[in-house]
């Protein structure tokens, strides 16, 4: 894992009239129900700590009401924390003045919203240029740059339409272009694709992955959909009732679910596609001579046919640079395809 771009440290959020009065109770571990019934406050987030690596896609996942939106809005401080800190590039966001915070939002972070949140009275190009005009870029230049991003999300020809004249998928492409146009290093996406039809949604995921391959932004992506999380995420954090239950790579989550909540989440997924052979290699065992070589980040699903055909039904697993990781047997591979007991 590379160095952290965003670091969230012991973040708490309590909703209610006097959060500061009950925060100590929360820090002492009072339950969400007790807090609500005895003290009339809602526990939004509880002791969240998370390092979000630079230039990777961090997915935050959880059921409705688990605090995903609350968490992502703390990163650009659209919501004030009750306790805890958020650091971006070694700067404490929670300590920033209003002016510094505005600069952070103008230059360093940008956001894509579940309900698009476009300006209905402005055309597509004016919407895409919105962040640039907040940065103080002159209009002609802003429109020129906006046009570039409109082309990137394949909306050319629609730049003078109003959002109300576009389909949901097109509107969200405007939302994406608006966020990308500011050249911010951090992209915050709150269920950005959840309101779209499955097919369009897959299309948007492809657009995002394609752009990420060349842009390498730090993306925080919220979803309640595991398939989406596994497709996009370099890392996945799972929230439940405002607490973080697990944080790791997709493989970690699939192979070593932290608890029943996570197991329940992953029970229907195609494990063969998520698990990479690298994580299954057994350094102790030695492969028979002439065993085929498989690169570590090959999906298990793809490796199976090679394994079946291999002499002794085992293969050598190597990293991309050729260094040896160990051996994988068919037996071990098949075992990994089944969920851990329970």
């Amino acid at each position: 894992m590379s160095e952290a771009k965003i670091e969230i440290k012991n973040l708490y959020k309590v909703f209610g009239d006097h959060p500061s009065k009950v925060i100590e109770l929360v820090q002492d571990g009072i339950s969400k129900t007790d807090l609500l019934e005895k003290h009339g406050h809602i526990l939004g987030l509880k002791d969240i700590s998370l390092k979000i690596p630079n230039r990777e896609i961090q997915v935050i996942m959880g059921l409705s009401g688990s605090g995903k939106s609350t968490l992502i809005r703390h990163i650009n401080r659209l919501i004030e924390p009750t306790a805890g800190e958020i650091w971006i590039d070694n700067e404490d966001v929670t300590a920033m003045s209003q002016a510094a915070l505005r600069d952070l939002r103008r230059f360093k972070t940008s956001m894509v919203f579940q309900k698009f949140a476009l300006l209905p009275h402005r055309t597509v190009i004016e919407n895409v240029a919105y962040g640039l005009s907040m940065q103080g870029v002159p209009e002609a230049e802003a429109h020129k740059r906006a046009m570039h991003w409109i082309e990137r999300v394949e909306l050319n020809g629609f730049e003078n339409n109003y959002p109300g004249q576009l389909s949901g998928g097109m509107q969200q492409r405007v939302g994406l272009a608006r966020a990308l146009a500011t050249d911010a290093e951090i992209l915050l996406m709150d269920e950005a694709f959840s309101a779209l039809d499955p097919l369009i949604r897959t299309g948007m995921q492809n657009i995002l992955l394609g752009l990420q391959e060349e842009l390498h932004k730090t993306i925080v992506f919220i979803t309640h959909d595991l398939d989406e999380a596994l497709r996009l995420g370099d890392n996945i954090a799972i929230l439940r009732d405002g607490e973080m239950v697990q944080d790791g790579s997709p493989q970690d989550i699939v192979m070593r679910p932290a608890d029943d909540y996570v197991s329940e989440f992953i029970k229907d997924i195609n494990r063969g596609r998520v698990i990479k052979v690298g994580s299954l290699a057994d350094p102790a065992a030695s492969a028979s001579d002439g065993a085929p070589i498989i690169v570590a980040d090959t999906a298990l699903e793809t490796a199976l046919s090679t394994l079946v055909a291999a002499p002794g039904q085992s293969c050598r697993i190597t990293k991309k640079d050729g260094s040896d990781l160990g051996t994988l047997t068919l037996e071990r591979a098949v075992a990994a395809l089944h969920a851990p007991a329970g």
């Binding site: 505005r102 939002r105 103008r106 956001m111 476009l118 209905p120 962040g131």
Partner: peptide, 21 residues
């Protein structure tokens, strides 16, 4: 719409810019 206002906030609009834009 509160969502639109939040978007303006997220892009760093000042109260004044929010009012007029």
């Amino acid at each position: 719409d509160r969502d639109v206002l939040e978007a303006a906030d997220a892009f760093g609009a000042s109260p004044r810019q929010k009012l007029f834009s």
